[in-house]
Design a protein around this nucleic acid. Sequence first.
DNA 1: AAACAGATTGACGTATACGTCAATCGACCG
DNA 2: CGGTCGATTGACGTATACGTCAATCTGTTT
Lengths: 146, 146
Amino acid sequence: MNTGDKTAGTTYTISQLAREFDVTTRAIRFYEDQGLLIPERVGRRRIYARRDRTRLKLILRGKRLGMTLGETRELFDLFDSSRDEARQLERFLRILGERRDILVQQQRDIEAVLHEINAAAAECERLLAEHAEPSPQDPAGPTVPA
Amino acid sequence: MNTGDKTAGTTYTISQLAREFDVTTRAIRFYEDQGLLIPERVGRRRIYARRDRTRLKLILRGKRLGMTLGETRELFDLFDSSRDEARQLERFLRILGERRDILVQQQRDIEAVLHEINAAAAECERLLAEHAEPSPQDPAGPTVPA
DNA sequence: AAACAGATTGACGTATACGTCAATCGACCG
DNA sequence: CGGTCGATTGACGTATACGTCAATCTGTTT
């Protein structure tokens, strides 16, 4: 019989995850301290399941977007929380909406910065072209024209 | 004659900027400590020009994107730096490219999170609809059908 | 059995980004 | 001329997110 089966599945050691996502084991343990990861234990050793791996991926994605671990944790808790009361569902929707507003603002910010970067890069390359060929009106440069 | 003219223009006090951008004066002074703002002085008082106001706007936009003040400062310095040597232009282009890569990655991350949020929100609203009307197959709910 | 690689648990240190007083100073107000 | 308001300068405190040892433990290999 299967009674007591832990539905084993793929598992990872802390250093496997550290290598895969290019973070230190110290960081991974810290995420556990903050309640973001809850690995199983075999003795004292941590065993990470796919769920933890997914969460780690989400943590790092959140960090790339400037989210604090606390904010990421709030979202994790939200997705874990029971979804049977209208009060909770409304709170859920409210927080999702707040996060969406932030993301949309970030999209606008990124667009703006990208435009400025592209403009600067374009002028930069124009100047570099001038350096290579001092003046298009003056072919008597220090470099051989052909 | 205009000799000695400081091209006065619009100026701001620290509290005006603080109000406009909803930050504390402490934060603005901290940005100055970090070399991001360089206001004029009248006696000991800081006088901010449009340039500083623009920079403050950029600082806050950077923060919304998770940039550190150091990274923002590097970009400021870059845009201020002389653009007459090929070495500098290439360095300029390299850093702009790195920042662009980060921004593009952030765009991808935002897309992913937005999709997940939208999916969760949609299911959330479906559940809320069920709460209001327990079951479409079972009109004998606690609420009056019509 | 000894050695070695990995993992764990403290514990303290560090960088970033301000918050929070306290004391002081200068300009205007009545 | 005392009071108040805004600004300034220290100086210390705080939250976040780990880094960096040191000591210990455990499993495996030789």
